[in-house]
Design a protein around this nucleic acid. Structure first.
Lengths: 220, 220
DNA sequence: TATTTGACGAACAGAGCTGTATACTAAACT
DNA sequence: AGTTTAGTATACAGCTCTGTTCGTCAAATA
């Protein structure tokens, strides 16, 4: 170890690249395991083996598991881009938007049903940070679905709650797969529910509060 | 060991009782663990310790884990009887019945929210037999909810699917807790959805209706 | 060419769980 | 009073995982 002020200039051009490749292999191995056996059954040893690397190497690259999990999720989503929910609010009618959005989203869920399954199943065995990230993403999705259609009071809160419930992967799975409605069937249920909810009497929710029009709701 | 035809009369009056007590302690210990740390984290060692018994004793009483799990569930449900869904079909109107049934059921879920949580969370780590039992119970609950209101074709199938979705514990949890609708709010959503579904045009189910594909780019 | 360093290989000590086997104890039984 | 047996205590051998340390190798680098 050097204690000199200028500890010798060392740039690592190609070196850095190799290092990055190793990091990638670890990240990808983790993603592969998370989407098959699931996070709960994924051990450091397993990751190392899957990546063709020593356990020590994994520890070196990711002393903090949270970082690995985040990198893993980021990598996977980059390779499997979800529908662009930012475009949803452009569709004015709630029913139209819901039909479009849910069809799009449920299609994506269907496409990656197997991969996403272990993730949601093992949610609680993941670090808090990852859980929060997933939950935030989901909440944002729901908000995009009803943005501009949520009145100020409880009616708005209820509609948003239902929207968030509908965009959740487990909800899709329950409707479309477990109860055999299929993607279209599940989407129709969602549309029906949202339109039905948007005309709920104001006293039907958690408390009582008047309903008005207009609202905003933004993304994270 | 005796090989006589009549291998010595041995009745075990009080003995049998003590044995049964031990079995009970094991069953209760298992229930306690399942409803706290969850089935996935419940080891034989843990059960033995919790029951104040040796591992060997657990093995002796329950060579088959499935049997233990079933006994455990039966015991718990006996101590915490769920609403009597057999009474539901007596209520003629779908909306009325749904309101009554869901309020009752969701109240029970609320009461045992903490206990049921680990069970459903760790569903997949339980023996198939237990999973099937739970699923069957749920399906039956849903059927009671819409019994007599299901037309012959797809419309009936869809309504039943929605009903089964609504009586599922995870659905309650998602609506009432995760998305903060509370029990009443969740029940109202259920009623709304069921009544909305019972008037769905017959072509809206699993049928066609093409969908736009993905639009790339990610959310947040 | 001499230096740096990422990755390897091997080992350590520890933890927890599994299933099986043994001999012993004490209480319930006939 | 003698027999049966549920439960104990203890041990074995096996498996997987954890986190850390240390010496070595080879390739990228100045």
């Amino acid at each position: 170890m050097r204690i000199t002020k200028q500890p010798r200039a060392y740039r690592m051009r190609q070196r850095a690249e190799l290092v990055e490749q190793t990091r990638q292999r670890i990240t990808e191995a983790t993603a592969r395991l998370h989407t098959t056996i699931g996070p709960a059954a994924t051990s450091i040893s397993g990751i190392a083996e899957e990546a063709g690397v020593t356990r020590v190497t994994v520890y070196r690259h990711f002393p903090d598991l949270d970082v690995l999990f985040q990198a893993c999720r980021a990598h996977w989503r980059e390779q499997h881009p979800p529908p662009d929910a930012r475009a949803w609010p452009a569709i004015p009618g709630l029913a139209d938007r819901a039909r479009h959005a849910l069809t799009e989203l449920y299609g994506w869920y269907r496409e990656h049903a197997e991969s996403l399954y272990p993730i949601y199943r093992d949610m609680t065995s993941m670090p808090r940070s990852s859980q929060d990230e997933i939950r935030a993403t989901n909440a944002w999705l729901g908000d995009q679905l009803v943005d501009g259609h949520t009145p100020k009071g409880d009616a708005g809160r209820r509609l948003r709650a239902v929207a968030r419930h509908l965009v959740d992967y487990p909800t899709w799975r329950s409707l479309a797969i477990e109860h055999d409605l299929g993607d279209d069937g599940a989407a129709n249920v969602g549309v029906r529910l949202l339109t039905a909810m948007s005309s709920v009497p104001p006293d039907e929710g958690r408390g009582r509060r008047a309903s008005s029009r207009r609202s905003a709701a933004g993304g994270p």
